[in-house]
Computed example of a mutant assay.
Amino acid sequence: MGSTKGLVLIVEDDRNIASIQELYLARDGFRTQVETDGLQGLDAVERLRPVAIVLDVTLPGLDGVTFCRRLRERQDWTPVLMVTARADEPDRILGLELGADDYVTKPFSPGELVARVNTVLRRAQGPPGGRPHVVGALRVDPARRTVHRDSEEVELTATEFNLLAHLLDHRGRVFTRRQLLAHVWGEEAYRDPRVVDVYVSQLRGKLGDASPIRTVRGVGYGATDRPA
């Protein structure tokens, strides 16, 4: 039976790890392409147009964090799953701030990696579209997955968009960080709740004074009917 789920670009300089990733992704229906150098991997994104990228942080030529920054700077929002060592927390957080959609830490099971790839792809598609949200100068359209501040479009990653849309869908309600992990990321126990803080900070930075997100000290986050 032929592959039907699209091409995943693996950017990994450890050929043993890359081979295992290829094997398990192929079993799940993906085609794969491996690049062992960050610069070559970045060129391959434009050439191959993958559905997702599995990106190691430590790479020759161009490290994963810089790779992700350059990718987003050219307005390419291909979902990125970053692979880090457990000691790489600063790089992991910086990668998320620069637009990575998710991460796994070494050592990881190949099955977990495949599950995460599927999760970021589902997240990129998002839930069925609903009615647009208008809060002050901000307009969020779930059907088109677009965000505008006045007439200017604001580029968000899939995870940033889903977090903002979820908060706006439940305006007036306050969510804990773990509740947001469960609702937006689809998982709760495996990751540090501080990841939510990173994404909220990113959204506020992109939306500026049009941001409707409010912090409730000691509880979590919610959205208001006007800029917070």
Rank of each mutant, 00 (worst) to 15 (best):
residue 99 G to H: 06
residue 57 V to R: 01
residue 224 T to D: 11
residue 112 E to H: 04
residue 128 P to E: 07
residue 106 K to C: 09
residue 42 L to I: 12
residue 212 P to S: 04
residue 122 R to I: 08
residue 162 N to F: 03
residue 178 R to G: 14
residue 209 D to H: 04
residue 5 K to Y: 01
residue 77 W to S: 11
residue 141 D to L: 01
residue 102 D to C: 02
residue 85 A to V: 09
residue 179 Q to M: 01
residue 203 L to C: 00
residue 193 P to C: 08
residue 183 H to Y: 13
residue 130 G to N: 06
residue 24 Y to E: 01
residue 8 V to W: 10
residue 110 P to H: 02
residue 159 T to S: 15
residue 45 V to Q: 03
residue 13 D to L: 08
residue 8 V to L: 14
residue 173 R to N: 14
residue 47 R to F: 07
residue 181 L to H: 00
residue 37 D to I: 09
residue 109 S to A: 12
residue 91 D to H: 05
residue 61 G to M: 04
residue 87 A to L: 15
residue 30 F to G: 08
residue 37 D to H: 10
residue 66 T to S: 10
residue 59 L to E: 01
residue 136 G to Y: 07
residue 6 G to T: 08
residue 140 V to M: 04
residue 20 I to Q: 14
residue 149 R to T: 14
residue 159 T to D: 05
residue 79 P to T: 09
residue 62 L to W: 00
residue 186 G to T: 01
residue 184 V to Q: 01
residue 166 H to S: 03
residue 98 L to H: 15
residue 10 I to R: 12
residue 95 G to M: 08
residue 166 H to M: 04
residue 188 E to R: 04
residue 211 S to M: 06
residue 14 D to R: 15
residue 107 P to T: 11
residue 159 T to L: 12
residue 163 L to K: 12
residue 50 P to R: 06
residue 16 N to P: 05
residue 105 T to L: 08
